[in-house]
C-alpha cells in the first residue's frame, strides 16, 4: 500500500509537469484534445471492468456519467455561489472541488448499484437494452428538472481549482485534474484486475455456473463491477462539467454510451491497455479527420472512415487491438525480436 501511495504521489507530480509542458508549449486546441482523451480514458477504463472483466454488456455509461456530472456541477455551483473564476489555491476551493468529485462519484455509484441489482438476471443483448433504456430515462428525467436548468442544463460551473504556479497558464489546471484521475483509475483498475476480485469477475465472465459452484457470488460481483464502473463514470462526468463550464442533458445521449463501448471493442475487450488506446483513438480520430474532410470538401467523410475502420476491425481482428493482453515487458519482448532472451511458447 505504501508503495502504491508513493507511486500515486509520483504520478501526481508527473501530471503537474505534464500540465506545465502543455500550458507552456502546446497550442490550446491540442491541449483540448488531450484533455478529452483523458476523460475518455476514465470512462473506458471504468466500463472495461463491467464489460471487459465481468463480461456484462452495459450500454448505459452515459447515464452514469450524466448523474455524476449534474450532481457534481450542482453541488459545485451551490458551494461557490456561482463564482466562476477560481482564485489561487485555497483550501476552500480545493476542498469544495474534491467534495463535489466525491459526491458525483458516489451518486453515480449508487445509481450503478440500483441499475446493477435488478438487471442481474439479464444477459447479453437484454442487459444491453435495459442499460440503454436506463441511460435514456436518466437523460429525459434530467431534461425535465427545472432545478438544474431543464434542457439547457447547468451553466456557469466553476473552473477546476488552480494549483500554485499555474496562475498564468491559459488552460488552467484542467489537465492536471483530469490526468490525476486517469492515473488513479488505471492504478486502481490494475490492482483490481490482479487481485482475487479481478479473477472472480473474470470467472463470472468465463463461466457463471462454474464460478457459482466454486463459491463466487456472481450477483455480488456483477453489482460490484457496476458500482466501480459507475463511480468513475460519475467522476468523469463531474470533471467534464467543470471542464466545459456548462453541462446539458443532451451531452449524454446513447451515442456517447456507444462511443465508450466502441473504445473498448477497438482496443480489446478486457484489456486495460486496450481501453486506454481505444479511448485515445476514438477521441482523436474525428478531430484529425475533420481537416481532411474540409480539404476534400466532403462533409461526413469522417463518419464513413470511422465506420469502415470498425468494419475492418471486426473482419480482421475481432478481438480488438490488444485482445485480452496487457502492454507489459513480456509482450514488448515478444514483439521486438532479440530484445530479450525470452520467447513465447
Amino acid at each position: 500500500m505504501a508503495r502504491n501511495f508513493l507511486v500515486m504521489l509520483g504520478l501526481l507530480a508527473g501530471c503537474y509537469g505534464f500540465n506545465f509542458v502543455l500550458a507552456e508549449f502546446i497550442e490550446v486546441v491540442y491541449v483540448d484534445y488531450i484533455n478529452l482523451c483523458g476523460l475518455a480514458i476514465i470512462l473506458a477504463v471504468g466500463l472495461n471492468v463491467i464489460n471487459g472483466l465481468a463480461g456484462q454488456f452495459s450500454l448505459g455509461h452515459a447515464g452514469f456519467m450524466s448523474v455524476g456530472a449534474f450532481a457534481g456541477a450542482y453541488a459545485s455551483i451551490m458551494l461557490t455561489y456561482g463564482v466562476i473564476e477560481s482564485g489561487p489555491l485555497s483550501f476552500a476551493s480545493m476542498g469544495s472541488f474534491l467534495l463535489c468529485l466525491a459526491l458525483s462519484g458516489l451518486s453515480a455509484a449508487a445509481v450503478g448499484a440500483l441499475v446493477g441489482a435488478p438487471t442481474l438476471r439479464l444477459k447479453g443483448d437484454y442487459l444491453a437494452i435495459a442499460t440503454l433504456g436506463f441511460a435514456e430515462i436518466t437523460r429525459i428525467v434530467l431534461t425535465a428538472q427545472d432545478a438544474i436548468g431543464g434542457p439547457t442544463g447547468l451553466k456557469r460551473i466553476p473552473k477546476m481549482p488552480l494549483l500554485p504556479g499555474a496562475e498564468k497558464w491559459d488552460g488552467g489546471t484542467s489537465t492536471f485534474w483530469i490526468y490525476a484521475f486517469v492515473c488513479l483509475v488505471i492504478l486502481l483498475s490494475l490492482n483490481l484486475q490482479r487481485s482475487t476480485f479481478g479473477r472472480a469477475l473474470i470467472c463470472v465472465r468465463e463461466n457463471e455456473l462454474a464460478a457459482e459452484t466454486m463459491g463466487v457470488r456472481a450477483a455480488r460481483m456483477k453489482v460490484m463491477a457496476f458500482v466501480y464502473g459507475a463511480f468513475f463514470a460519475g467522476i468523469a462526468g463531474c470533471l467534464y462539467a467543470h471542464y466545459q463550464h456548462s453541462v446539458r442533458p443532451d451531452d449524454f445521449t446513447t451515442v456517447r454510451s456507444i462511443e465508450v463501448v466502441v473504445m473498448l471493442v477497438l482496443g480489446g475487450l478486457g484489456s486495460l491497455t486496450g481501453a486506454v488506446v481505444g479511448a485515445v483513438i476514438v477521441t482523436l480520430m474525428p478531430q484529425f479527420l475533420r481537416p481532411l474532410e474540409e480539404f476534400l470538401n466532403l462533409s461526413g467523410l469522417s463518419m464513413v472512415v470511422y465506420a469502415a475502420l470498425l468494419l475492418l476491425m471486426m473482419l480482421f481482428r475481432p478481438q480488438g487491438i490488444f485482445g485480452q493482453r496487457e502492454l507489459s515487458l513480456k509482450l514488448l519482448r515478444r514483439l521486438v525480436p532479440g530484445a530479450g532472451r525470452e520467447s513465447g511458447p
Partner: peptide
C-alpha cells in the same frame, strides 16, 4: 475490495 484496490498487506 479496498484491500485489493489499495494493495494492502
Amino acid at each position: 475490495l479496498f484491500d485489493a484496490l489499495l494493495r494492502t498487506g
